[in-house]
């Protein structure tokens, strides 16, 4: 074999060796645990703390309101949809207060008249005509809505 070919093969061997070494040292630990990805990523993604805690947790303390709501038309709506996520409130209820929805603007997100909204599923009003600027909750109790 000619000398220059030998030298080149040597140079390539060194290069490939370095690449293999890098591959060995830089490949993450849990690679290919389940597939061609970092297995630990599954745990890391699952480790995030949920912010919405679920109605059952709310009812543990706020049982009277919960009982009222569960009989009404808003029973399928989770507390936190109107009051915001409760993960901080659950830990320190005195410091982290839940929020109150900002009046009629909030109600019409669901109840404004729109032809795309199925009539059978949701009651709709033309807000300006229906309440004439009055706040919805001055007539309707959102925990026990009446028609």
């Amino acid at each position: 074999m000619p000398l220059q070919v030998k030298r080149l093969l040597l140079a390539f061997a060194v290069f490939i060796g370095i690449m293999l070494g890098l591959k060995y040292f830089l490949t993450p630990d849990s690679w290919r645990e389940y597939g061609p990805y970092r297995g630990k990523a599954l745990i890391e993604i699952a480790d995030k703390v949920p912010k919405y805690v679920d109605m059952e947790t709310c009812i543990m303390c706020h049982d009277s309101i919960g009982e009222l709501k569960i009989q009404g038309l808003h029973k399928s709506i989770q507390c936190e949809i109107c009051h915001g996520p409760g993960y901080l409130h659950v830990d320190e209820p005195e410091i982290n207060k839940m929020k109150l929805p900002a009046g009629s603007e909030f109600c019409i997100q669901c109840h404004a008249r729109n032809a795309a909204r199925p009539d059978k599923i949701i009651k709709q009003v033309d807000a300006a005509e229906h309440s004439e600027g009055e706040n919805c909750i001055s007539c309707h109790n959102p925990h026990e809505p009446w028609l």
Partner: peptide, 18 residues
């Protein structure tokens, strides 16, 4: 040159072929 200092016609022929 990777310290290959061969300048013979044979080595040039090899270069050419490869």
């Amino acid at each position: 040159t990777l310290w290959v200092l061969d300048t013979s016609p044979e080595s040039r022929k090899t270069d050419e072929k490869i």
